[in-house]
Design a protein around this nucleic acid. Structure first.
Lengths: 211, 211
DNA sequence: AGGGAAATAGGCCGCTCGACCTATAGTAAA
DNA sequence: TTTACTATAGGTCGAGCGGCCTATTTCCCT
C-alpha cells in the first residue's frame, strides 16, 4: 500500500484526486493539505511515500515546498500550467515528476507507483511513457466504466464538437429533454458539471475516433 | 511572453529576424542592436530573457559580448560561419546555443524557448533536435494563427476543462467581462459558437500540453 | 501625430443550460 | 414476479452563456 499526501489550495481538486486515488487498490491517501505550509507539517507527522504537490499555492509554492523538504520525500509536481519553463524549474528544485492536472488518472497512478519505486520521471534519458507503461495497471477509469452505451454515444458527439442540445437530439433521434437527462447522468458519473468538461473528458478517455 | 534582444551589424538581418519573431505569439522582441556595445547597453537597461548575438560584429565580437555579460543573460550565438572551431569557442565563452544563420525560423524560435526555459543547447549529451522538438510550436491552423497570445491562454485553459467564467477570470487575473470578450473573439476567429467547441478546438490544435 | 490593434471593463437582453423532479415503457437480473 | 436499471419524455426555474454595444488605456507602426 502506497501512502500519498496531496497538497492543493483548490480544495475541490485535492478532494477529487483523493477520491479518485482512494478507488485504486494499491494506493491510499494519507491526507490532503490545502496549502504548502500545511503539507510540510503533514509530511513530518505522517508516514507518506509520495507527495503530490500543486505548483500554484498562495502560502508556499510547490517550489518552496520542495526546497523545505530537501528531497526527504519523493514528490510529484502537479500543475495547471505544465509548460517547459515550470518543468525545468521543478526539476531543478528536486521534483521527481512533473505532471499536468489534465493527466489521465491511470497515468497519475502509474507515476505515483513509479516514483514510490524510486524512479525519477524527470530524467530525460528515457521517455516518460516508457517508464509509466511499466507501472500501468489495467485500471479502468472509474467513471467511464459505468457509462451506459447511450451515454457514451452522447459523450462521443460532445467530443466531436457537437454541443447544442437540439443538434445532439437530432443526431441521436431523441427528444432534447432526453439529451439533457443523459447529460445530467454523465455529469454525475464523471464528476463534472458542464458540456465543456464533458468534451474534454470524451477526448481524454479516447472516445473520439480519428485523432 | 519571452523577451528577446537581437544584435547584428547587418541591420537588415536584425530587422528581418525581429519581424519574423514578432509574428510568433509567445516571443517578443525587446529591441535590436546594430553592434556589440549597443547590445551590452541594452541588455542592462531592458528586461530581456534571451539574447541573439551575431558573431561577426565590427566593434565588439559576439565572443567579447559574452565575456562582458558573463552569463548574466542566456545567449544564443548566430553566425554566418558555423564551423566546429567557432562553435567550441562560443561554448567556452558561455553561449547557450550556437546556430547558423541558415537555421529555419521555427527552429530558431524553438531554440529561443528552450534557452529561455533553462536548456543548454551546446551540451553534446543530447541531440540538438531532441531538445528542440520539445519546444517546437505546434503547426497552427489558419484560424488559430490569428489568435492573440491572451486568447490562446484562455483557449488552453478551456482545453484543460476550466469552463466557468468566474474560474477563467481568476486564472487569468482579469474580470469575468474580459473573459467573455476574449471568448467572443475566439468564437469568431475559429468560427465556433460556444465553450464546448472551443475546448475541442484547443485540444485539436495541440494547445493543451502533456497529453 | 495619428491610426490601429490588443487588453481591459462594463451594460443589456434573450435564450439556453444545468439542477431537480415526475413519469412510462422495456429489459434483464434476482 | 418483483426489483433494478436504462431509455425515453416532460415540467419548472434560476443562473449563466453568448450576441451586440460602448469605452479606456496602452502599445506599435506609420
Amino acid at each position: 500500500m502506497i501512502e500519498v499526501l496531496i497538497a492543493d489550495d483548490h480544495t475541490l481538486f485535492a478532494e477529487g484526486v483523493s477520491q479518485a486515488l482512494a478507488a485504486i487498490p494499491d494506493l491510499h491517501v494519507a491526507g490532503t493539505a490545502s496549502g504548502g505550509m500545511e503539507l510540510v507539517e503533514m509530511a513530518k507527522k505522517t508516514r507518506a511515500d509520495v507527495l503530490l504537490i500543486d505548483l500554484e499555492m498562495p502560502d508556499l509554492s510547490g517550489f518552496e515546498v520542495l526546497e523545505k523538504l530537501k528531497g526527504s520525500l519523493p514528490a510529484i509536481i502537479v500543475t495547471m500550467h505544465a509548460d517547459a519553463h515550470r518543468r525545468s524549474q521543478a526539476v531543478e528544485a528536486g521534483a521527481r515528476g512533473f505532471l499536468s492536472k489534465s493527466t489521465p488518472l491511470p497515468e497519475l497512478a502509474a507515476a505515483v507507483r513509479a516514483v514510490s519505486a524510486g524512479e525519477n520521471l524527470t530524467s530525460l534519458t528515457t521517455t516518460l511513457r516508457e517508464i509509466l507503461d511499466n507501472y500501468m495497471e489495467p485500471t479502468l477509469d472509474p467513471g467511464a466504466a459505468s457509462l451506459t452505451a447511450r451515454e457514451r454515444e452522447l459523450l462521443t458527439l460532445l467530443g466531436e464538437g457537437v454541443s447544442a442540445t437540439e443538434e445532439l437530439a437530432e443526431r441521436l433521434y431523441i427528444s432534447p429533454k432526453t439529451v439533457k437527462n443523459h447529460l445530467a447522468s454523465i455529469y454525475e458519473k464523471l464528476s463534472i458539471s458542464d458540456r465543456t468538461q464533458a468534451a474534454v473528458e470524451a477526448i481524454r478517455l479516447g472516445l473520439v475516433p480519428n485523432r
